[in-house]
Structure formats: structure tokens, C-alpha cells
Amino acid sequence: MQKGIIASVALSAAMAVGLCAPARAEFPEKPVEMTILFGSTAQTIGQLLAELMSRHLPQPVVPVARTGAGGAVGYQHVHGTAPDGYNIVWNSNSISTVHHGGGLPFDYTAFAPVAKISVEVPAIAVRADSGWETLSDMAADIKSAGRKLKVGASGRGSFTHLATEAILAALDLSDSAIHVPYDQGRAPVELLAGRLDAALQWPGQFVSHHEAGTLRILCVTSAARISQLPDVPTCAESGAGEMDIVMWRGLAAPAGTPPEAIARLEEAARLAAESEEFRKAAQTIGFEVEFAGHEAFGELIARDDTIIADLMGQLGLTEQ
């Protein structure tokens, strides 16, 4: 026992020295913490990104999950850290939905954008035997039948809910639809079992059923078709008029982080995002790699924030 302790003291001391050795280099001198806000695929993508970024930095990027409250917990943590580049957040449009929903006292301006990495595009699916080939079919059918459309999406105020409401508004179905909130994974089951008429979720959940011919993905909500589903039309093509709703993911640091640190992280993120491995993961997990530097990313965040604020305001989801 005693020997074990001495040995472990010696070992840890050696390790500590080893860690501190390459001191006084340029940023980063110590590991960078990447706060991850959500579980499952968002976490997996973030972990992969962190690993790939670590290859292009002298210090590792460590993914740390701080989930809960729709991302508010993680945003608050990073917001509270020193703006030195050692704390970054794997963020998304959730900064806007959470802030305008009243979950966070600060908005996107509390963070300095580093880089946009990817986008995810929600898809709307129905049962294959519904007879609906397009959104217009669905809308016409519902209107003529005079019944309500039961459509599944995540809880009120979530991104998929906002996208759902936007589509319903475009189809003039807002008053003849019931939003059924589902925690992510269950939407396909409820569709298959016939308890829902339609569901809007990330396409990964529908792909296998779509290929098997039990569900049909009507459309994706982006302006252009997505690489994972080249044969699926956009919602605009499917009858919903102008529509471009995508969820971006990217990296941000607390506002006031030195530009050198941001540039360094941005470069590592670019190399990671453009790597073959990341592209392959995008195909299987189901997201689009769409890199953008910190300036373009900043503009995108600001633009999206006003759109989301408007939409939430119209739906009565904003905190007064």
C-alpha cells in the first residue's frame, strides 16, 4: 500500500512535469475545453470535431458535455469563463431559441464567433400509405377532410417546432394542426403506428424507414436539396413557397477573446471540417459540412437571431 502510494506520487509528478514542459509557446499552452450542449448526435459530432481539431493544435481540444435546459446551462458556463480562448462552446441556433424563450439572460452577443462548421436540415415525413407525395397534397387533403393534422416535433419553442410552425403557416394549416411534442427518437414510431399524421425531425431518424418504404420523406426545409437525400425535394418544391430553415452548428468563445486565439482555433476548425473523416461522418450521421470563417459566421448568427425572434414573437413563444 505504502509502496503503491509512493509509486503513484512519483508517477503523477512525472506526468505533471510532462504536461507542463512545452510552456511559453503561443496559444494554446494548455488544453482547450469545448463545451457540448446536447447529447446523442450533437455530442458525437462535437467529439469528432474536437478530436480532429486536436491534430492541428499543440494541445488537445477536450470535449466536455454540459447538457441541460436546451443548452442554457452550457452557454452560461462558457459565458462565465475567462475570455482567453481556452473555453469554447459547440453552439447552434439554440442560443437564439433559448434566449428569446426566456431561458438565458444574455444573447448571442455575449459570444465571439469562431467558425461555422455544419448545418443540419430538418425533414418532414409521413406514412408511405398516406397517399401524400407533396406538402400540397397533404394540405389539400387535410383542408377537404376538415380534420386536424397531427404533426410531431420536439417541445414548444424548440427548433423543430419553429420549423414546423413555419411550414404550417406557409401551407395555411396553422389553425388546423395539432403540434404533438415528442422527445427526439420517438417520432418515427408514432408515425408508423398511425398516431401521428406527419413528423418533422432530423432526417437521420427517417432515412432507414424511407428506404424501406414504410415512411416517405416529403421534403427538407433548406433552400437546396441535401447531399444525404438527393432525391428528396425541398419544401419549396413541395409546395411551401419560399423556405430556408436550417440549423447551423459552430464554435464560439466568450466575447472579448483575443483575435489571435480565435484565428488559431478557426484554422484548426477549418482543417478538421475539411478532413475526409469529417465528411464521411457527415454522410452517415446526416449533416452537411458547411464551413464559414468567424466574420461570415457572426453575420449569420445575427441574421438568424432576428428571424428566430420574429418567428417566436408571432407564435407567442417569446418571454415578455
Binding site: 500500500m1 505504502q2 502510494i5 503513484s8 506520487v9 503523477s12
Partner: peptide, 11 residues
């Protein structure tokens, strides 16, 4: 012993 043992062991 306890303090350093537990801390280092867990770490």
C-alpha cells in the same frame, strides 16, 4: 495517506 492516496488514485 488517505488524502493523497484517494486523490491520486481517483485522478
Amino acid at each position: 495517506g488517505m488524502a493523497f492516496g484517494i486523490a491520486l488514485g481517483a485522478w
